[in-house]
Simulated scan of single mutants.
Amino acid sequence: MSTNHPFDGLSEFLALAKRLSVRQAAHDLGKTPGAVSQSLQRLEQRLGVSLFQRTTRRMALTEAGAELLARVEPAAHAIVSGLEDAAQSAMEPSGTLRLLVERLALPHVLEPVLPVFRQAWPNLRLDITVSNRHDDFVSEGYDAGISIGSYIAQDMIAVRIAKPFNWAVFGSPDYFRRKGRPRAVGDLVTHECIVFRRPEKGDIYRWEFLENGVAVRFDPAGAITVNDGELMRSLAVLGQGLIYSSTFHTSRELAAGMLEPALLDCSPGRDGLFLYFPKSARNQPKLRAFIEICAQVLNR
């Protein structure tokens, strides 16, 4: 069984076809003239045909050699070009950056970041999927995702891209005037709570607190159940009940005075929004470029 590789001798053949000189072809390839001649002989033996006419003074392609050159040379140029492109892509961002992004990151991360990123790298393509389901991150071929830190798998690298935030109860000023403000987790049983059903799992989201150093979970009850965070916050602004959310999700409503926090001192801990990706992707130039722009824009 032959152990020859189909490409064996082709680089020598192409160099000889270009130079029509064993000595000059050997110089181009960084080999000895004898090594080049032997490679050509093995190629001709394998093909069963002479590729060059040789005399003591000159070389010329045979008809078979000219036909082989016409077929092989364009492919060789394509291979060289492909290798150069691959090497270039290892140095600067190129191709398509595929992101899996939670909806809450759109106004706080993507809207401010994308214009700057596109201006910096106009030839880099973006493929963005907005979803709260990140189960198929690896199998779907995403380069990176944006999610709340506590939801990210342990084997991922996570880079914080937003300031830490706290989980708490929120209501409108009008609601608190009418119903009062809960001072302890137990007070919530007397309040109207807007229930959130997680769209990605279909279960009711339980409210979590840390009261006197003890973890406490509360099952909210109320006349309204929703599966959309934006709608939930809008209903709270309208005074329809209390919601469980974070200072990050409600930052715009808090800044405008449309919502106020309660039980903030019972927050279960500080969380954050992170860009995450597998270890195998950490050296991708396109991903490094996105991380740098996020740091530049979001840390202002």
Rank of each mutant, 00 (worst) to 15 (best):
A76H: 07
H77P: 03
H77Q: 15
I79A: 10
D85N: 10
A86V: 05
M91W: 06
M91C: 08
G95H: 00
T96N: 13
R98Y: 02
V101C: 05
E102F: 05
R103Q: 11
R103S: 12
A105W: 02
V109I: 11
V109C: 06
E111Y: 15
V113I: 10
F117C: 08
R118S: 11
Q119V: 08
A120W: 00
W121C: 10
W121M: 13
L124Q: 13
L124N: 09
R125D: 14
L126V: 07
D127W: 02
H134R: 12
D135P: 14
V138W: 01
S139Q: 09
E140T: 06
G145C: 08
S147R: 12
S147A: 12
S150E: 05
Y151E: 07
A153W: 00
A158C: 01
I161F: 10
I161Q: 01
P164H: 05
A168D: 03
G171P: 05
G171A: 15
P173W: 03
P173F: 06
D174G: 06
Y175A: 06
F176Y: 12
R178H: 09
G180V: 03
R181F: 12
R183G: 15
R183T: 14
R183P: 15
A184N: 04
V185I: 11
D187I: 08
D187H: 07
V189Q: 15
V189M: 06
T190H: 15
H191Q: 14
C193Q: 04
I194R: 09
R197D: 06
E200D: 15
K201C: 13
G202D: 08
D203R: 10
I204P: 02
W207H: 14
E211G: 03
N212T: 11
N212Q: 07
G213V: 07
G213L: 08
V214Q: 00
F218R: 10
D219M: 08
